[in-house]
C-alpha cells in the first residue's frame, strides 16, 4: 500500500506521491479470474512484445496489450480495469495469432472487460447495444429507409428474424434477464444520466 505523505500540501503530495508497487497492491485472485473467464494460460506470458508489435491500436494510442498482460500476471486489478485503454482493442486477434506462448491476449482483454463490467466500469455504447438487442433482438435494428429499400428488392420489409417473428423475443429477453444484464445496463446508464 502506498505510504501517505501527510505534508499538509496537496500539490507536493500529488507530485511526490509514492510510486512503489507493494506486495499487497497485487490481487492474485485477479489472475485466476482472468484465466477462468478467458480460458487461456495468461500466467505464461514472458513479455516478448509480439502482441503489441502486431496491434493496430498501439501505434495510434497509449494502448499496450503487453502491459495489460503484465497487469494480469501481477494481479494489478485496479490499474487494469480502470484504464480506459482497455476498450481500444478491436479484437482483431493478430496478437493471439502470433503469440509464441500460445496465449490468447485478445481473450484476456475480453475477460478483463467482463470483470470491469462487474464493477460497473463500461462505456455507454456497449450498454446501448444490450438495450437494442433486448428490445428488438438486433444490435443494429431495421429502419424505414431500409424497409422501403428491402421492398424494392423484392425482400420482405422486415427480415425473417425477430423483426418478423416477435414471438421469439421473450426467449432472448429471458436469456438476458437470467444474467440480469438488462437491469444492470439500465441502472448504469441511469446513474450516468442517460
Amino acid at each position: 500500500m502506498a505510504t501517505e505523505k501527510n505534508y499538509g500540501n496537496p500539490e507536493l503530495e500529488a507530485k511526490l506521491r509514492d510510486r512503489y508497487l507493494y506486495t499487497n497492491d497485487t490481487n492474485p485472485e485477479f489472475l485466476n479470474d482472468v484465466k477462468k473467464v478467458s480460458r487461456t494460460i495468461a500466467h505464461m506470458c514472458f513479455q516478448c512484445g509480439t502482441c503489441t508489435g502486431s496491434c493496430p491500436s498501439a501505434p495510434r494510442s497509449s494502448y499496450r496489450i503487453r502491459l495489460f498482460m503484465r497487469r494480469g500476471v501481477l494481479g494489478l486489478e485496479k490499474e487494469a480495469l480502470n484504464d480506459p485503454d482497455l476498450w481500444l482493442c478491436t479484437t482483431c486477434y493478430s496478437c493471439t495469432d502470433r503469440c509464441p506462448r500460445d496465449i490468447a491476449p485478445t481473450d484476456v482483454i475480453m475477460a478483463m472487460r467482463n470483470l470491469a463490467f462487474k464493477y460497473d466500469i463500461v462505456p455507454r455504447n456497449f450498454l446501448k447495444t444490450v438495450q437494442l438487442i433486448y428490445t428488438t433482438g438486433h444490435g443494429v435494428p431495421n429502419n424505414d429507409v431500409n424497409r422501403s429499400a428491402r421492398e424494392k428488392l423484392g425482400l420482405s420489409r422486415d427480415p425473417p428474424t425477430t423483426h418478423s417473428y416477435p414471438e421469439f423475443m421473450p426467449g432472448i429477453q429471458k436469456i438476458i434477464d437470467h444474467y440480469k444484464l438488462k437491469e444492470n445496463a439500465d441502472r448504469i446508464l441511469a446513474e450516468e444520466g442517460q
Binding site: 516478448c48 508489435g53 501505434p59 503487453r66
Partner: peptide
C-alpha cells in the same frame, strides 16, 4: 520490421 521496444513501451516500425 514490426515489433515493440518493450523497454521503451513503444511499437516500432
Amino acid at each position: 520490421v514490426y515489433t515493440e521496444d518493450t523497454l521503451l513501451g513503444r511499437p516500432l516500425s
